Simulated scan of single mutants.
Amino acid sequence: MGEPLLTVENLKKHFPIESGIFGRAAGHIKAVDGVSFTVHEGETLGLVGESGCGKSTTGRMILRLIEPTDGRIVFAGKEMTKLPKRELREIRKDIQMIFQDPFASLNPRHTVERIIEEPMIVHKLGGKKERKRRVKELLEVVGLDSYHAKRYPHQFSGGQRQRIGIARALAVNPKLIIADEPVSALDVSVQSQVLNLLSDLQEQFSLTFLFIAHDLSVVHHFSDRVGVMYLGQIVELAASDQLYDDPKHPYTQALLSAVPVPDPDSEKEKMILSGDVPSPADPPKGCVFHNRCPMAMDKCKAVKPKLAAIDDGRLAACHLYH
């Protein structure tokens, strides 16, 4: 592989907890606490974890919809964390987002044509006629008829609305698409259609994806590599098949053991975790997973493990392997 298209280094987002009439910070919620990864051109990196682990916040920080507390984001050789607003606006043309809720992310007062055309207007791409033609092309690319352009979002099903969101993301020919739980709000039968569409579009337009989800089977189907997040940190990062066939980190093992198996006679052993997920306002010292880990050692309670290579390019943050 060549140079990565996207590099994230030690990315952090700490939200202040305000208290008192003067709104002084009484502490911080560590939503993302030192995340690092790379995404190469043409690949799909999946980010997976329980709700509240910081995966969506990570995606929004890459676009700087949320400003990072610390860390570096380098996209196509440019450090986004230091870019002024004018340059940031230009680079956003190359990074687009597909949002989780296909209804809330579309303006109900605008027609589908206006919704898809808007990114082209913002980035001053093409004349009026050219943009209208492009909208019709994109609708057909995502599996909708061009006559739908004059309709409004409420006139479509959830799956159709998500296709409109995908068409809008493609409108400015991006290099990277951040897909934030793009199928979690859809019926299971529609999920596979949208995932197959995204796979076809990736091949057709040489797209790169950061695919954020909590459903492990969906991530396995769509991703080349997978990063597993827990309490604002990546605990394991590996090739998709490698991770699913032989998970190393105890948290990854527990997540995969909970995935339903479509075989009533299967005697798959489930790994039940004790306790609750700690608060990101007061994460445990040492390894953030030690208070729920069945394999925890004394070292885990005192020393934070680094995300480091263990075999064949796999990374894990666990004292069992270092």
Results as ranks from 00 to 15, higher is better:
residue 91 I to T: 13
residue 149 A to P: 00
residue 131 R to P: 00
residue 178 I to V: 12
residue 208 T to K: 13
residue 304 K to Q: 12
residue 102 P to G: 08
residue 202 Q to M: 13
residue 266 S to K: 08
residue 273 L to E: 04
residue 64 R to Y: 06
residue 263 D to T: 08
residue 264 P to Q: 07
residue 144 L to I: 00
residue 187 D to I: 01
residue 270 K to S: 07
residue 149 A to N: 01
residue 301 K to T: 15
residue 231 L to W: 13
residue 272 I to W: 10
residue 34 G to I: 04
residue 304 K to I: 06
residue 183 V to C: 11
residue 63 L to V: 05
residue 44 T to M: 02
residue 151 R to A: 11
residue 279 S to W: 12
residue 292 R to C: 00
residue 44 T to F: 00
residue 254 A to P: 00
residue 13 K to T: 02
residue 9 E to W: 13
residue 282 D to A: 13
residue 322 H to D: 09
residue 7 T to K: 15
residue 123 H to S: 14
residue 187 D to L: 04
residue 79 E to H: 04
residue 193 Q to N: 15
residue 55 K to S: 11
residue 281 A to S: 10
residue 305 P to G: 05
residue 158 G to I: 01
residue 184 S to I: 03
residue 13 K to P: 01
residue 93 K to G: 12
residue 53 C to K: 01
residue 27 G to S: 09
residue 4 P to G: 09
residue 177 I to H: 09
residue 277 V to E: 09
residue 164 I to D: 05
residue 115 I to A: 10
residue 136 K to S: 12
residue 226 V to D: 07
residue 288 V to W: 10
residue 268 K to N: 02
residue 33 D to E: 01
residue 79 E to M: 09
residue 44 T to D: 00
residue 266 S to R: 15
residue 152 Y to A: 12
residue 93 K to S: 12
residue 305 P to N: 07
residue 60 R to H: 13
residue 303 V to P: 06
residue 173 N to T: 05
residue 90 E to H: 08
residue 260 P to W: 14
residue 302 A to F: 06
residue 142 V to T: 01
residue 141 V to I: 08
residue 226 V to R: 05
residue 77 G to D: 01
residue 191 Q to V: 06
residue 144 L to T: 02
residue 89 R to A: 07
residue 136 K to N: 08
residue 113 E to K: 11
residue 38 T to I: 07
residue 28 H to C: 12
residue 199 S to C: 11
residue 124 K to P: 02
residue 118 E to L: 05
residue 285 K to R: 02
residue 270 K to P: 11
residue 48 V to N: 00
residue 263 D to P: 01
residue 270 K to Q: 15
residue 85 K to Q: 07
residue 109 R to I: 08
residue 253 Q to A: 15
residue 63 L to T: 06
residue 278 P to C: 15
residue 250 P to I: 03
residue 302 A to L: 15
residue 115 I to S: 10
residue 36 S to H: 06
residue 212 I to H: 15
residue 41 E to H: 05
residue 38 T to M: 15
residue 210 L to H: 12
residue 64 R to I: 03
residue 93 K to L: 09
residue 232 G to N: 00
residue 107 N to K: 14
residue 27 G to H: 01
residue 263 D to R: 13
residue 100 Q to D: 08
residue 94 D to M: 15
residue 224 D to P: 04
residue 42 G to F: 02
residue 73 I to L: 02
residue 189 S to V: 09
residue 151 R to Q: 13
residue 264 P to K: 11
residue 21 I to T: 04
residue 116 I to F: 12
